[in-house]
Design a protein around this nucleic acid. Structure first.
Lengths: 218, 218
DNA sequence: GTCTATAGCAGGATAGAC
DNA sequence: GTCTATCCTGCTATAGAC
């Protein structure tokens, strides 16, 4: 299954290039020819290795996407701490850092977010894989970590919505780069990403923050 | 330009059906034949009225999408209040309600969000229209309204990031319905939408909320 | 396992009748 | 303005040589 990094098999090259192209342009906008050209192999290779285009797409999620999800999750667990060392802030910060910094390159994070966002807008067969094998267990993991720090009366549903809200920011700042960059006039460099992480942490913990003195909050 | 609602022109029928199909499936997944069939007219009509498929896509944004954006913005202004009646909460609630309830139907809101999300993941020529004519002025409008209630030292950049964060939730709860519904086990009915709005308002104002007694926050 | 060649079809676009 | 008929490109998928 595994191979030398210097000589990836045709199958692996196809998967890698397919992931990049599917993320960038979406399933229908990418042709098999485009993928095989990028991978430097023959048009027929997709059918030989994966059967057809759709199976290749699903395989991208099953192997590459899931692998990245595992990397992100591992990073989150390192950052969030384990057992007694945690705090609400460390969990949220861990989440933001895992998705916006972490061991993946900037391009890989974008690619990862683009793929999952497309599936969330318009689920395909790949969604089932993403949902049951990554989203659901990850959400439950976070829920268990956060639960001890939250108001005792909070329902499971409220907890889930809270996590979704943190997650929505993490996703948004990953995929809406064009809009964010244009309006803040900042490129997505490590400096700005640190700013974004701090912002997500602060906003998640305190929201818009206390109102101005003279307009006391509730 | 305007026509009787009972007898929309071919051009209008094309625009309407095109919007629905582009939102649901994305530009490349929709064929011109599919659009003309849905509109009940001839294949050649797209070229006659719009020149080509891409121009039709951009025209969907320029007329229909912008019109809905104006409806949402108007609703926001009604809800957020004007002048002295505002509060931070009324602005955020107005924003959430304008996008999640408001005069549009449930289907229209989904369609609207799907279209803009696709442009944010992967901007096309339509992005320029959306950005300069809807996103930018709307963001500036919200910024002006929120500014008086926020900490005096807050920079413009922080303010923008705060608004993005509220906006990310509003967008997410609109387009990620499959995931949200599966994990909360709730359908997107008016009841659940009210719950979502309350959640967005609460989270935006206070974040995850005060930690449990015994774990005092910073 | 990788290639060439090609079948077979769906796509966007257009010409020209009405 | 709307239609039919058609062009031609580009696609997925497969057959079969090597």
């Amino acid at each position: 299954m595994e191979r030398n990094e210097e000589t990836p098999s045709t199958r692996e090259r196809l998967l890698r290039e397919a992931e990049i192209l599917f993320a960038r342009k979406g399933y229908h906008a990418v042709s098999v020819r485009e993928i095989t050209d990028a991978a430097g192999c023959n048009l027929a290779s997709v059918n030989y290795h994966f059967g057809n285009k759709e199976s290749l797409y699903i395989e991208v999620f099953r192997s590459l996407w899931m692998e990245r999800a595992a990397v992100i999750r591992k990073r989150f667990e390192e950052k969030a701490g384990s057992g007694g060392m945690e705090s609400m802030e460390s969990v949220v910060r861990g989440l933001a850092e895992a998705f916006l910094e972490g061991p993946l390159t900037d391009e890989e994070r974008l690619l990862h977010a683009q793929l999952v966002i497309r599936e969330m807008i318009q689920p395909t067969k790949a969604f089932q894989v993403v949902f049951t094998m990554a989203m659901k267990p990850f959400l439950e993991n976070i829920a268990t970590r956060l639960r001890p720090f939250l108001a005792p009366g909070m329902s499971d549903e409220e907890l889930i919505l809270n996590i979704f809200s943190v997650f929505s920011m993490v996703l948004y700042f990953n995929f809406a780069r064009t809009a964010v960059s244009r309006l803040t006039d900042k490129p997505y460099d490590p400096d700005f990403i640190r700013t974004l992480i701090s912002h997500i942490v602060r906003f998640s913990l305190h929201g818009l923050g206390p109102e101005k003195p003279g307009d006391p909050g509730p």
